[in-house]
Amino acid sequence: MRKLLMVSAALAVTASAGWSEAIMPASVSFDDGAVASSISGQPGDPEAGRLVMNKGAGNCIACHEVSVLSEWPFHGEVGPALDGVGDRWSEAELRGIVSNAKMMFPETMMPSFYKTDGYIRPGNAFTGKAAEGELEPLLTAQQIEDVVAFLLTLKE
């Protein structure tokens, strides 16, 4: 039992070491709006990415329609439908768009999901109060990779 605990503690350490290899938001480098390689240092999981499309900080379908997500109601019309984006854009381009869409589409309405500075009156989530301390990006490095992996499954 004790040994098992120690093994899982060791695993946890490895996992967090994996995390610390994530590229911090300010250090992500964009090339024509695209980001060449995984920002978490890990591959993305399309199933996990699928969930981010709906709930919480992602809520991509607030603005985008996605046919394969029709089990969730009320897709928005603010951005283009995402059907077929896996054909239209490369993995690196999608990673760039999801991390900071303003690099690909200057001044776009799409929020920057992997950015932590440069905001005007940033709030403490949806409380209306001022943010305290350092901001977290809207999505973690791994969530960005998961969403990108999901988007790559959207082929015509």
Partner: peptide, 25 residues
């Protein structure tokens, strides 16, 4: 016209550029 907050959205983004469109429900 100022884009406030971590979502960087102005009144105009929603109510000038997108009136008539659905944003979620």
């Amino acid at each position: 016209y100022t884009r406030y907050g971590q979502l960087e959205l102005s009144c105009a983004n929603c109510h000038e550029d997108n009136y008539g469109n659905m944003i979620r429900a």
